[in-house]
Simulated assay, not measured.
Amino acid sequence: MKTLYFDCFSGISGDMVIGALIDAGADPEFLAEELKKLKIDDEYELGWKKVVKNGITSTKFDVILLDSISVNNADDHSHEHTHSHDHSHDHSHEHTHSHDHNHDHSHEHMHNHDHSHDHSHSHSHHHRSYKDIMKLILEADLSDNVKNTALNIFEKIGRAEGHIHGMPLEQVHFHEVGAVDSIIDIVGAAILFHHLEVSVIKASAIPVGTGRIKIDHGIYPVPAPATLEILKGIPLEHTNIRGELTTPTGAAIVAAMADEFCAFPSLKVQAIGYGAGTKTFAEHPNVLRVIIGEQA
């Protein structure tokens, strides 16, 4: 039985999931072609490259917004929060944000991506409601399995936001998760899970980090409210690392997809992938490890 195990020792985010799956052997060109079926490919370009995180070669996945915006994911997807803020890119999250732009870019698959980012971009466009996102996915020429998986992930986030803000799911307006990059991460993850033909998905306990993050509503504790709500019923792991290790999108992907949360399972390992986050920590590599193998 083909099993995929998420080893989330440094947390999980949407871009880390895609990077890890590509690193484990998923075809990024297939991903790019399938994502075109959403018919929003005039709004973004994809990039993937090899970077080194504290000695571990991993794959960094990026979504580059086009429509007058030069980049979005370079901030480790911390702006995935669905807390109705407006992508002001005030990412003073008490993280060091030491972007790993000095790594080996020799394997870069990016277009016009020079890392000279102006973090003052408003990102106020492309905010989509839950209904907008459902329509986008349902009307795409994707397989039913991919559609159902993506919708399940979005529903996790939508219900968490609705609970926090006291509104029904249908009235939830996704601001940052409604932005293009997070749609790509979630639908992309669904595409690659099914492309890899994995039968079972398991995951470790989820470290969420410590400290505070600044969002439009003010200073919030880590984990962010949406992240914590999504992870209800899922084992969390204590860590003293200051920073947001798990984002709402990462939490929703693992919450929707994992059949079990457990210690490392008995596997005959076939593939290993490392998906890079953007932040760099002094004591450990900021990567998501994916292990794929046969389980008896």
Results as ranks from 00 to 15, higher is better:
214 K>E: 11
230 I>Q: 06
215 I>W: 12
209 G>F: 04
195 H>C: 05
192 L>G: 02
220 Y>T: 13
213 I>S: 10
186 I>F: 03
232 K>W: 05
195 H>Y: 12
205 A>G: 13
202 K>Y: 02
191 I>K: 08
233 G>H: 08
229 E>N: 11
214 K>Q: 12
211 G>L: 04
194 H>L: 08
194 H>T: 07
210 T>N: 13
195 H>L: 09
194 H>D: 12
188 G>C: 05
216 D>L: 14
197 E>G: 11
213 I>R: 09
203 A>F: 00
194 H>A: 04
204 S>V: 01
223 P>E: 03
228 L>N: 11
201 I>K: 10
223 P>V: 05
234 I>P: 07
187 V>P: 06
195 H>T: 07
222 V>W: 05
206 I>D: 00
197 E>I: 11
211 G>W: 06
208 V>A: 08
226 A>V: 11
214 K>R: 14
217 H>W: 14
220 Y>E: 14
221 P>W: 10
230 I>S: 03
230 I>K: 08
232 K>I: 01
191 I>M: 08
204 S>D: 02
232 K>Y: 03
191 I>D: 06
217 H>Q: 15
211 G>I: 05
202 K>G: 00
202 K>W: 02
226 A>F: 08
226 A>N: 07
191 I>Q: 05
189 A>T: 15
200 V>L: 12
200 V>R: 15
189 A>D: 10
202 K>I: 04
227 T>Y: 09
223 P>L: 06
234 I>L: 10
188 G>R: 07
202 K>R: 14
201 I>L: 13
231 L>I: 06
210 T>V: 13
220 Y>L: 15
